[in-house]
């Protein structure tokens, strides 16, 4: 197992380095510069470029940057928060985004599992139809629309949740964004759970377990759900990507000071270091998630681990 994990971790680190290079290259190709104010003279621009080392060739800048990143230094912001260390800038927003994202994912997955199981157990009844409708809505309506609907109806009309994030009441402020973000994972998970569960429930070994007189709840939780989970875990990666991109707009609607908002502003203002740091964090989250999923496979289904170790 440890050999397997070490190998996965090493691959992840190499992937991250490659991503950093591509990000750096892409930013270099982006038009404009952080200093494109109409009022700047050429002499001023030259001075600013020199000050921030932007006048040096690409590979020297990249080598210096990687060196700094390895020491935990992500450089300074040029625009968003002038001359502030990027590491200090992104810490707060990152934690906020992670909290909201994790809550949305947790809630969405839990609801999705429940809906999926209910639909599978009551296959071809009105419950099944209702669950299908809910999941189709969840897949087809973007989280941004859910966010605005929640803000308007639940926040403004009913006054149950705050419309805007407030640091005075963080937990309550998270409800809106969390619900909006939960929709898409809920829909995907429930669709997969339903179809997998129907397959599994019809299989021979479930019939054997049932014929042994095991309680219905045990049959589902212990035997059927476990086998249903494997394909569901495979879709967690894509779900996470969906959640990350969705979080940028959802954060905007509820005024959540997350990393999504920061990244959009950084890209618009050519704040290179902040853009790279945010994109890098997003990539790192995705890769870590994939790593966890890979490891989870092994935990849930020992056959996978054995097969991979054997190869």
């Amino acid at each position: 197992m440890s050999k397997y994990i070490t190998k996965r971790v090493l691959i992840s680190i190499l992937t991250l380095l490659a991503i950093l290079f591509v990000l750096f290259l892409m930013l270099d190709f982006m038009p404009g510069s952080p200093f494109n104010d109409e009022k700047l003279t050429e002499a001023q621009k030259a001075l600013l470029y020199a000050k921030y080392g932007l006048d040096q060739p690409f590979f020297i800048r990249f080598a210096k940057y990687v060196g700094a990143v390895l020491r935990g230094d992500l450089g300074f912001s040029y625009v968003l928060n002038k001359n502030k260390a990027v590491t200090d800038m992104i810490k707060g927003p990152l934690v906020v985004s992670l909290k909201v994202g994790a809550l949305g994912m947790l809630l969405g997955t839990a609801l999705g599992l429940l809906l999926g199981i209910a639909a599978a157990l009551k296959h071809n009844t009105w419950i099944d139809t209702l669950c299908s409708i809910v999941s189709i809505l969840g897949v087809s309506v973007p989280s941004y629309v859910f966010a605005l609907l929640l803000a308007y109806f639940v926040g403004f009309k009913m006054g149950w949740i705050p419309i805007l994030y407030s640091s005075k009441n963080v937990l309550k402020s998270f409800i809106g964004p969390m619900l909006a973000l939960a929709m898409s994972p809920m829909a995907s998970v429930s669709r997969f759970t339903r179809s997998e569960m129907i397959d599994v429930l019809g299989s021979d070994y479930i019939q054997l377990v049932e014929s042994k007189g095991v309680r219905q709840s045990n049959v589902i939780l212990k035997h059927a759900l476990r086998n249903t989970l494997i394909p569901i875990i495979t879709i967690m990666g894509p779900i996470l990507v969906n959640l990350l991109t969705g979080s940028m707009v959802v954060e905007k609607v509820f005024g959540v000071p997350g990393i999504g908002t920061m990244m959009v502003t950084a890209i618009q203002s050519n704040d290179y270091n902040v853009t790279i740091a945010c994109a890098f964090v997003y990539s790192a989250m995705y890769i870590v998630m994939m790593l966890i999923i890979d490891i989870l496979y092994g935990v849930i289904d020992p056959r996978i681990r054995v097969a991979k170790e054997g190869s």
Binding site: G155, G159, W160, I161, P162, N169, K172, I175, L179
Partner: peptide, 9 residues
């Protein structure tokens, strides 16, 4: 959480 949020603002 969501049911206790009527006193916002």
């Amino acid at each position: 959480g969501s049911s206790g949020g009527s006193d916002s603002g």
